[in-house]
Computed example of a mutant assay.
Amino acid sequence: MNDSTTRQCRLAYLTSIPSPYRADMVRAWARHNPHLAISVFYTDPDDQGRGWDADPVGEGVTETRLPVIAAFQKYGKFNRKLAAMVRDHDVIMIGGFEQASYLTAALLAKLYRKPVILLFDGFSPARFGTEPAPILALKRLTVRLAQGLFANGTVGARYLREQLGVARDTPIHNQFLSHREAPIETARQRMASKDKAQIRHALGIPDDGRPVLMTCGYLTTRKRIDLIIDAIARRPHAQRPLLLVVGDGALREILQRQAAEAGVPAYFAGFRLGADLASFYLAADAFVLASNDDPWGLVVNEAMSAGLPVLVSDACGVALDLVKDDVNGFVFRTGDAASLADALTRLETMDCEAMADASRSLVAQWTPAHSAASLGKAVADAVSAMAS
């Protein structure tokens, strides 16, 4: 790169949409890497219906929405001004594999002789070996175009090596995909004078002395809330926790009816964000994520930061790094209600305070600051590889 010793390295990060958790990470990337001048480019004109309210990143980071030329059902958006983005920056970081603009940006970077970093959030362990050959071919092409790899956790590294053929001696830097700590701290301050029973009362959660098992996410088939209800229903009536469901979606009425018919006490709190969502973590005794396909599961990070034991299906990427059986929770078999019911039984015998401490300790490394340090190494690798 020209003048790399006298000016900041200009890093262009191409991603789909702004998001609150990613904004926190990008702020840290800029704050902890003063040698980088970071610009973020978004391929999508809106938030894809997520309902997120992401503040500007700040920290000197510029943000630009690229005009859309075309949209493809499986391959995302194709945008204008990609060539100018590549030309005007020293390093290009793309937020995924096969989307049209990501691949185009990587090809343009090759043309302009600019290093590329591939940022990869993760991949559901349940989907290893299931992708069609054309998709794998596109992903392998993208990997070959990248000089730096910035992948999330064990699942990200394993996928790159086992499915896409990245060599064992090629560095893969951990992205440390991070939750937002500020909403949890705000909720703690709000509820500082209340015990769990008082927090539940303040939030309108029924409280008859049962433990509260929380789950959170869009109420879609993939999240398998039905499996959680089934698992709870397998337990004796007196030992059934209250299921606290935070989130909304097309299956809400169906799930409410299933819980009522199965005799499972349940409270559906609807869609929540920020400190309002975090308050529900503080009201719960444990957290469950039963997805049958989840590249990571950032809600598990949040629950652990709030001090909850976690029960996570083995189809979630987060299970490989942040869930330790008999330490801070349990991993159960995807789609297996009996396996989840067994985990619930085992949880009853555990020291939940010790598990809460273990959750907080394990998630403490997954912070924007750690992500920033790792990104600095990925940039250095990419620049060095391009120069060699």
Rank of each mutant, 00 (worst) to 15 (best):
A12F: 05
R22V: 15
R22G: 06
V26W: 09
W29P: 00
H35C: 05
A37R: 09
V40R: 01
F41R: 01
F41M: 04
P45R: 11
P45K: 12
Q48V: 10
D55L: 13
G58L: 11
G60T: 02
E63G: 00
E63W: 06
T64H: 11
V68F: 01
Q73H: 14
G76W: 00
F78G: 12
R80W: 15
V86P: 00
V86F: 06
R87E: 15
R87I: 04
H89W: 03
D90S: 02
M93P: 01
M93Y: 02
L111T: 14
L111M: 14
R113L: 15
V116P: 05
I117N: 00
L119F: 13
D121T: 12
S124E: 01
P125T: 02
R127M: 08
T142R: 06
V143L: 10
L145N: 09
G148S: 03
A151N: 04
R161F: 01
L164H: 14
R180I: 08
A182F: 06
S193Y: 13
A197E: 15
I205V: 13
C216K: 12
G217H: 00
L219M: 08
T221I: 11
R222M: 06
K223P: 00
R224T: 09
I225Y: 11
I229C: 01
H237L: 06
Q239H: 12
G247H: 00
D248P: 05
L251E: 14
R252T: 03
Q256W: 09
R257I: 12
Q258W: 01
G270D: 07
F271D: 08
A278C: 05
A278S: 06
L282D: 03
D285Q: 07
D285F: 09
A286G: 00
S291K: 01
G297M: 02
L298Y: 07
L298T: 13
V300E: 00
N301E: 09
A306W: 05
V310A: 12
V312Q: 12
V312W: 09
A315W: 11
C316V: 07
G317H: 04
G317Y: 07
A319H: 11
A319Q: 13
L322S: 04
K324Y: 10
K324H: 14
N328A: 11
F332C: 01
A338D: 15
S339R: 09
L347S: 14
E348P: 12
D351V: 11
M355Q: 10
M355C: 05
L362K: 10
H370R: 13
S371A: 15
L375C: 07
A380G: 08
D381V: 08
A382W: 02
V383T: 08
S384I: 14
